[in-house]
Amino acid sequence: MSLLASSSFSHNRAVLVMICAATLWSIAGVLTRHLEVARGFEVTFWRSLFAAVFVVGALLWQKRGRAVANVLALGPVGLLSGLMWAVMFCCFMIALTMTTVANTLVVMSISPLLTALLAWALLRQKIAARTWLAIAVAFVGMVWMFVRGMAHVSAGQLLGMGIALGVPLASSINVIVLKKAGARVDLIPAVLVGGLVSALLMLPLSLPMQASAHDIGILAILGFFQLGFPCMLMVAASRSLAAPEIALLALIEVLLGPIWAWLGAGEVPANETLAGGALVVAALVFNELVALRRPANQASAV
């Protein structure tokens, strides 16, 4: 856990950490395809609970006797971040019960645009033209990836997409909170708050529990390695990345999700998925290569 204990990373290392986080997030779809009986609210409950357990263990390992004090030191900003995590945890899984994975992910792809707008409005952060261009190209790629899945959308699926909108909204607010207060407040415990709030909200809706031992094992993997650990990685990486950059790199989750579903659950991606994915990769690579080559005196523009 020494990686998470680092106060800050170099830019390149933070990019790698964020890529690892987004890659771990992307395994949600393929793993849930192998659940036997657990569905909907119960999946959200167990996933959130196991994520909270993982963060508790990580804090006890990293902070030892100071773990409780670290959580109590969150303050209002930390609680706001925790609530945003809870909204993301809940809305993502609820949306998946009401609409397709494709529809959910295409809604999530607006996160970089929302984050850039909030960073510009609230943080007074100058957004470079190449970042706006990367966001636009990545968004086009996301829509292209899922255009086939958007062809026939029912009223129920539209409602699910409306709920999914809570994910990019909460994510964008959370990224701004991380950038605004992350330097003075350790916001990794906020992931714990998010997991606990999400689990408590989903508990009454999950009864009676139906998950088998097989399902509990998969949900534990989801909670530990698809939710708890990568969310902690994102908090750590956010100390060295600009807000729009965090949101752009998070799109790797949307890109890789269909690929894992293809390899692990036999869901063959459409041509639109491959073409749109190529656009997303091009946007991310372009943005990072230009960032690496920018002069030091232009570092304020992201």
Results as ranks from 00 to 15, higher is better:
213 A>E: 05
214 H>T: 11
214 H>G: 03
214 H>P: 03
215 D>R: 09
215 D>E: 12
216 I>T: 10
217 G>V: 02
218 I>D: 04
218 I>R: 02
219 L>C: 01
219 L>D: 03
219 L>H: 02
220 A>R: 02
220 A>M: 15
220 A>E: 01
221 I>P: 01
221 I>M: 14
222 L>K: 03
222 L>F: 04
222 L>Q: 14
222 L>P: 00
223 G>S: 07
223 G>K: 00
223 G>D: 10
223 G>A: 11
224 F>M: 06
225 F>I: 09
226 Q>I: 06
226 Q>K: 07
226 Q>L: 08
227 L>H: 03
227 L>M: 15
229 F>P: 02
230 P>T: 13
231 C>V: 09
231 C>T: 13
232 M>P: 03
234 M>C: 13
234 M>L: 15
234 M>R: 06
234 M>I: 08
235 V>A: 13
237 A>C: 09
237 A>W: 09
238 S>L: 08
239 R>N: 11
239 R>D: 06
239 R>M: 09
239 R>W: 03
239 R>G: 14
241 L>I: 07
242 A>G: 14
242 A>L: 06
242 A>N: 10
243 A>I: 04
243 A>G: 05
243 A>S: 14
246 I>W: 00
246 I>P: 01
246 I>F: 00
246 I>Q: 03
247 A>Y: 07
248 L>F: 04
248 L>G: 02
250 A>N: 13
250 A>L: 11
252 I>K: 07
254 V>R: 00
255 L>T: 03
256 L>P: 02
257 G>T: 15
258 P>G: 06
258 P>I: 05
258 P>H: 10
259 I>W: 12
260 W>K: 06
261 A>R: 14
261 A>W: 01
261 A>T: 08
261 A>H: 02
261 A>V: 11
261 A>Y: 00
261 A>C: 12
262 W>V: 04
262 W>N: 01
263 L>H: 01
263 L>A: 14
264 G>A: 14
264 G>T: 06
265 A>V: 06
265 A>I: 09
265 A>L: 10
265 A>W: 11
266 G>M: 07
266 G>C: 08
266 G>T: 10
268 V>P: 01
268 V>G: 00
268 V>T: 14
269 P>E: 12
270 A>P: 01
271 N>K: 13
271 N>L: 15
271 N>P: 05
272 E>H: 13
274 L>D: 05
274 L>E: 07
274 L>Y: 11
276 G>N: 06
276 G>I: 09
277 G>C: 10
277 G>Q: 11
277 G>H: 10
277 G>V: 12
277 G>K: 11
278 A>I: 08
278 A>Q: 09
278 A>G: 15
279 L>K: 06
279 L>R: 04
279 L>Y: 08
280 V>E: 05
282 A>E: 04
283 A>F: 02
283 A>N: 03
283 A>R: 02
283 A>Y: 05
284 L>N: 02
284 L>H: 02
285 V>S: 00
286 F>S: 13
286 F>H: 06
287 N>A: 15
287 N>P: 00
287 N>L: 00
288 E>C: 00
288 E>W: 02
288 E>R: 13
288 E>S: 02
288 E>T: 03
289 L>Q: 12
290 V>R: 10
290 V>F: 09
292 L>C: 03
